[in-house]
Design a protein around this nucleic acid. Sequence first.
DNA 1: GTTAAAAGTGACAGCGCTGACATTTTGTTC
DNA 2: GAACAAAATGTCAGCGCTGTCACTTTTAAC
Lengths: 346, 346
Amino acid sequence: MANNIAPAPITIQDVADLVQVSPKTVSRVINNEPRVRPATRERILKAIDELNYRPNLNARGLASNRSFLIGLFCARPGDYLSEFQAGAVERCREASLHLMVEPWDVEGPNIQKQIDTLLGQLRLEGVILLPPLSDHRLVLNKLQQAAIPVVRVAPQENLNMAPSVGINDYAAAREVTAHFIKLGHRRIGFILGHPEHGATQQRYLGFVDEMRAHQIPVVPELVQTGNFVFADGLVCAERMLRAASPPTAIFASNDDMAAAAISMARKFGLDLPRQLSVAGFDDAPLATMIWPELTTVRQPVAAMARRAADLIIQLEPRRNGWPERMPRHLFDHELIVRNSTARPAR
Amino acid sequence: MANNIAPAPITIQDVADLVQVSPKTVSRVINNEPRVRPATRERILKAIDELNYRPNLNARGLASNRSFLIGLFCARPGDYLSEFQAGAVERCREASLHLMVEPWDVEGPNIQKQIDTLLGQLRLEGVILLPPLSDHRLVLNKLQQAAIPVVRVAPQENLNMAPSVGINDYAAAREVTAHFIKLGHRRIGFILGHPEHGATQQRYLGFVDEMRAHQIPVVPELVQTGNFVFADGLVCAERMLRAASPPTAIFASNDDMAAAAISMARKFGLDLPRQLSVAGFDDAPLATMIWPELTTVRQPVAAMARRAADLIIQLEPRRNGWPERMPRHLFDHELIVRNSTARPAR
DNA sequence: GTTAAAAGTGACAGCGCTGACATTTTGTTC
DNA sequence: GAACAAAATGTCAGCGCTGTCACTTTTAAC
């Protein structure tokens, strides 16, 4: 194997020498500081390009006590993560930051240790918290103590601890419910998500309120709790379908569980969507991979991710303190009607 | 908002002072170097723990010209990525390294720039290449020039440029094909994956060879190329089903496309699996979320990821040069038979 | 007990950059 | 064209750690 010698790395001094200025001036250009004559800036930029100079992040970080790292904390990987990640990375790049993804074991006892290590070693410049971490008190407190900018994604409570991004889950859930009702459904089942997940409460609330608004009773038997995973959806759906008076429609808190409901309905030999309408939430890729295709709610995940990263980047410069108000950035959702929902059979 | 003062960070000097040794000795302990009296090591370890000292990565990196960063390069996020990521991160943590995920635009013209930035700025200590990047000459060359350890995941060609992890796609594909044949299928369609993706060739070869071994002709009309995505699967399946003499079975190179084949078959009003058997590859979560559930091949993705990270870590210490032989780490796959495959209708 | 080798420890410079502050240059005003 | 302010640039130390090499102590050998 060839044993290529690493070429002598180019330093800020090399650039300074070439342009005949002090390293400090080059530094100013790199960091986009003002007070550099446009002509000088031009020459330096040119030299940087010519020499193909790349500042050493370690040196930069050591001298300025930065890390150029933003964390994306999440409980477990999933589709949502992938998409979110892509959006966040993109934005980070523009600010020449880097994104590191740290899957966490939320349940485990060593979350404390994990957080200490990450904050101590990495000195992250900001952290994006995906649910259910968005509402994890311990994590939030630690982060606040360390004075690290945080953005919470789809948080449950409005803790006024950090800005957040999300959609109006409540309104979206009302829309889906209204869609069912308009089709003529009255016995509507609901599958709740993970109890600690931000969206869970809001989506359920939206469902209940819309039902109430139409004076339709919410039957306890037809409200089941899943964990946002397919397997749980199966169980929940089965319970409902076995009920003395089964639902004509099921509203699941996410697409995985909705797919499970469809799968279970098929096992019960139901004709879909005639005998059972199902709606999900998220518009995951899965939604159009099953038959019938899912009626669901689309979230602009990538846009939300970009904003989240952006907020960190914006927040970051003023190290001392959060803005007084904690803005909740709400994005527009979209009800996507496909053929998993239809008028109920007579 | 509370404006917590960042506590004065603890440095190596603090530890040294407490134990009454030189910083260098503490450094030796941190880096697991030999030539430290066990008793001294003990005392230092204790002090580190007491003070809750965390070495500053930037300083460490600057002084020793390291970065403690491993890259995971991928073309676009997906389920496979999530799972892989989790496995790799886990292993990296054990070696107190960090994983950063960099989604790349493979097609784009600026891949060159991206790579330069990443290597120049981040000075990654190693890179794991996910397909189709595993076979990307430009990327591989750059990485080799920079003398950065690389592990290729599921590579197409055995370039002898870096160790790799993967399964025996060829053998697995033969097994799936044999399964079809044993059930009594003769007209079997095949949906190829992304042409640059490592597994594509091998899987197709396995299919062809097994067909040949049974003297069953491979009908050109029934071999279609997709891109590993659902939408392409639809198109490929439609073409086959429209053929003068349509297949009784379709073998798709991955689960997404298999799901598409099922979806399309349904649109043709076929009774599944009686009138059409379908098999996929990967055992994605999707495989059990559709009906009928997919017969497919399971890869031990998480284990492969761990190994990949491990290889980087192993490779890393001896900076000068690759091992002579480029080991291909092959993992055991598993044929998972579910109900998407059955005897063909008479 | 002497001696050489090996093991253990320390002194010190410097990695590449930026913060704080000093100095020089330019622009503006009368 | 002085006098001053503002803008532009430079000087220099030091961020926290490790590499190198020098030094001291222990061990082993005779």
